[in-house]
Computed example of a mutant assay.
Amino acid sequence: MSPRRPPEPVLDAALVGVALADAWAHVDVQDRPALACAVLGALALAVRRRLPLVTFALTLPTALVTDAVVAPMAALYTLSSLNRHRLLLGGCALSYAIIDFLPWPWSSMDATELGQTNNLFHLSYTLATAAAPVFLGQLVQARRELSLRLADISEAREHERLLTAQSVLAKERAQLAREMHDVVSHQVSLIAVQAGALQVGSRDPETRQAAATIRRLSVQTLDELRHMVSVLRASGSSPTELTPQPSLADLQRLVDASGIEAKLEAELPEELAPTVQRAVYRTVQEALTNVRKHAPGATATVRVGHRDGVLTTTVTNTAPTRHALALPSAHVGLVGLAQRAELLGGTVTSGPTAQGGYELCLELPVDRNR
Rank of each mutant, 00 (worst) to 15 (best):
T59H: 04
M109F: 13
A46W: 10
L40Q: 10
R84C: 06
A34M: 08
S80L: 04
D110N: 09
A44H: 02
L79D: 03
A97E: 07
A74P: 04
M109R: 10
A68E: 10
S81I: 02
A111P: 01
A57W: 13
P61W: 00
A75W: 02
A46K: 11
A71L: 08
L89Y: 02
L94E: 09
L88R: 11
L64K: 14
N83P: 00
W106I: 11
G91H: 05
C37R: 01
S95I: 12
R84Q: 10
D100R: 15
G90S: 07
A75K: 01
Y77I: 05
R50A: 14
V69W: 14
L87I: 15
S95Y: 13
A71S: 14
L79V: 05
L76G: 01
W106H: 09
I99E: 12
P103I: 12
P103H: 09
R48W: 02
A71D: 08
V47T: 15
C37W: 04
L60M: 02
V69R: 15
L53K: 08
L51R: 14
C92N: 00
S80H: 07
A34I: 12
L40T: 12
A97D: 07
A68Q: 13
L60C: 00
Y77T: 06
P72M: 12
C37Q: 04
A74Y: 08
V65D: 01
V65K: 05
P105S: 02
L87G: 13
A71H: 09
C37D: 06
A57L: 13
D100L: 15
R86M: 11
A93N: 08
S80I: 02
D100W: 13
D67F: 11
L43G: 00
L60I: 03
T78H: 09
V54T: 12
W104D: 06
L82I: 07
A44C: 04
L82T: 13
L87W: 13
V69H: 12
P61C: 00
D110G: 04
W104K: 04
D100H: 15
A68V: 08
R84Y: 07
R48K: 06
L88Q: 12
A75Q: 01
L43T: 06
S95Q: 14
A71K: 14
D110W: 04
S81K: 11
A42L: 05
A38L: 02
S81A: 11
A42I: 00
L79A: 06
A38E: 01
V54G: 07
A63E: 05
N83E: 12
A36R: 08
S95H: 14
L35Y: 11
S107G: 09
Y77D: 07
G91W: 07
L102D: 12
A93T: 10
L40G: 10
L102S: 11
R84W: 04
G41T: 00
L89N: 02
L43Q: 08
L76A: 03
